[in-house]
Amino acid sequence: MQKISTFLWFDNNLEEAVEFYASVFKNSKIVSISKAPGDGGKAFAATFEIEGQEFLALNGGPGHPFTDAISLFVKCETQEEIDYYWDKLTADGGKAVACGWLKDKYGLSWQIVPNLVMSKLLGAPDRVKAQRVMHALVKMVKLDIAGLQAAYDEE
């Protein structure tokens, strides 16, 4: 059992959101959806998993919208994986933000980032190369592995 879980407050679209996330991430599942008694069968709370990470969710209404103060960080291995998650999560009302950040159609912030950037390029012992990568990264909206690698390799 996971000791700490992320808890998400949705604005009356909980069931739709949980089904959406389960459709985007191949290794995901809806564990449970609880219906509110006497509310026409509307979902009240849910538990779901994405890549082994447990999420709890509430259909809480408009009282507490998502902010950029928290985001979900998706570590990607290839540009195809970045493109897949980017396209899925910005579809139907989601929006690109900057530097690999986006907001999905429910207002939840995501970071779609290649592992290569975090581990190798930005963490390089050659701080000049790492700085070039950071300068390239901040100019991007969706991150581009080839562009980041080119900044690193630049002489």
Rank of each mutant, 00 (worst) to 15 (best):
K3F: 09
I4W: 03
I4C: 03
L8G: 01
F10W: 01
N12F: 04
L14W: 03
E15I: 03
E16S: 03
F20S: 06
A22F: 07
S23L: 09
F25K: 05
K26P: 15
K29E: 13
I30C: 06
I33T: 11
A36Y: 07
G38P: 11
D39M: 15
G40H: 04
G40S: 12
G41Y: 06
K42E: 06
A43Q: 11
A45R: 10
F48Y: 07
I50G: 01
I50C: 02
E51A: 14
Q53V: 12
E54F: 07
L56S: 08
A57H: 04
A57N: 01
A57M: 03
L58I: 10
L58V: 06
N59Q: 00
G61L: 04
G61I: 00
P65C: 05
D68R: 12
D68Q: 11
I70W: 06
I70R: 07
S71R: 01
S71W: 00
L72D: 00
L72S: 03
F73D: 02
V74R: 01
V74E: 00
V74M: 05
Q79T: 10
D83K: 06
D83Y: 07
Y84H: 14
Y85E: 09
L89E: 12
L89I: 11
D92E: 15
G100K: 01
K103V: 11
K103Y: 13
D104I: 06
D104N: 05
K105Y: 10
K105Q: 08
K105I: 07
G107K: 09
L108A: 05
S109Q: 08
Q111L: 05
V113G: 00
P114A: 00
L116A: 13
M118D: 05
S119C: 06
S119A: 12
K120R: 14
G123M: 07
D126A: 14
V128N: 08
A130Q: 11
Q131W: 09
Q131L: 07
Q131E: 11
V133P: 06
L137G: 04
V138Q: 02
K142T: 03
L143P: 14
D144P: 04
D144Y: 05
G147K: 02
Q149T: 15
A151H: 03
E155W: 06
E155A: 13
